[in-house]
């Protein structure tokens, strides 16, 4: 019951609904999780900014009643860096897709993580470029079909978690739309975390990715997340063979490191003492 009550006050439901996404798209489920997390933290809507890039995920910002900025393709993190740096009191959520955040926006992703600026970055990972019709993305697994990989993808794919970890992100987690309850919690922890938080969400794209690769209906794809993923705690007691082909979920990194905006504040104090 409590799941239901608070979401609608965060939506621009009188203006922009229904959502633009296809039937069964997981993006709406992530949005719901995000809103429940914000609600659980009791942050005022005026104090939340959402910055999104281009693509299916980019449309998220249109639907929420925060300070919302829909930017150019892949650049969401750079806009968000400016926004957060200028107003550190704003809780800034950055919504990107896998192509948006890791391909065209890869450089910004790397450096935002390195800088450890207090943003919460969401990567909606549907393994494909949905908005443009199903081209191969940096997270499309090898062998999978896409409109620009009609005979199967011959490239290797990114593991968002490893990329984020290597770049210095101080909170790295992965959730699924199937386990939206766990996702709620991950997001709430991610938002509270001081520093750059990366939350990758596996979200099904039944209309394009699913069809190209014959993965069944929206329901089938959502259910398959349950079979294909294993929570981190559970995986600890499993053998490498058992984990073969499985994707781990949960919180991979959660550490404290100096945060950019706070460090800058100290620098200002040093400069003004002189």
């Amino acid at each position: 019951m409590q799941k239901d009550i608070d979401v609608y006050q965060y939506l621009r439901h009188e203006k922009k609904f229904p959502l633009i996404w296809c039937a069964g798209c997981g993006n709406g489920i992530v949005l719901g999780s995000m809103l429940r997390a914000v609600d659980s933290l009791k942050i005022s809507k005026d104090r939340v900014a959402m910055v999104s890039g281009i693509g299916c995920s980019g449309r998220t910002s249109t639907y929420v009643d925060f300070n919302t900025l829909h930017t150019t393709h892949g650049r969401a993190l750079s806009f968000a860096t400016g926004l957060k740096f200028a107003r550190p009191e704003l809780t800034t959520l950055v919504v990107m897709g896998d192509g948006d955040g890791l391909s065209i926006g890869g450089n910004h992703f790397i450096h935002a993580a390195r800088r450890n600026i207090d943003l919460t970055a969401f990567i909606y990972n549907n393994n494909i470029y949905g908005m443009t019709g199903g081209q191969v993305s940096p997270t499309t697994p090898g062998g999978k079909i896409a409109s620009t990989a009609p005979m199967g993808n011959i490239e290797n794919n990114f593991d968002t978690i490893k990329v984020a970890e290597a770049c210095g992100a101080t909170f790295v987690a992965r959730g699924t739309t199937y386990d939206a309850d766990a996702l709620d919690e991950i997001i709430a922890i991610g938002i509270q975390h001081k520093g750059f938080s990366v939350i990758e969400v596996l979200t099904p794209c039944p209309t394009i990715y699913g069809r190209y690769n014959r993965l069944g209906s929206a329901v089938d794809m959502l259910k398959s997340q349950l079979d294909d993923t294993i929570p981190l705690e559970q995986a600890k007691n499993m053998s490498a063979e058992e984990l073969q082909g499985k994707t781990l979920t949960g919180i991979f990194v959660n550490e404290d490191k100096r945060e950019f905006c706070e460090e800058y504040e100290k620098l200002v104090q040093r400069a003004q003492k002189k």
Binding site: M1, K3, D4, V7, Y8, L11, H13, F17, P18, L19, W21, G24, C25, G26, N27, G28, I29, G32, S33, R36, T177, Y178, A180, D181, D184, L222
Partner: peptide, 13 residues
């Protein structure tokens, strides 16, 4: 409710 991608379902007591 939480898995409805379109916020089209509400549960009411």
């Amino acid at each position: 409710i939480t898995r409805c991608p379109d916020f089209a379902l509400r549960m009411i007591e």
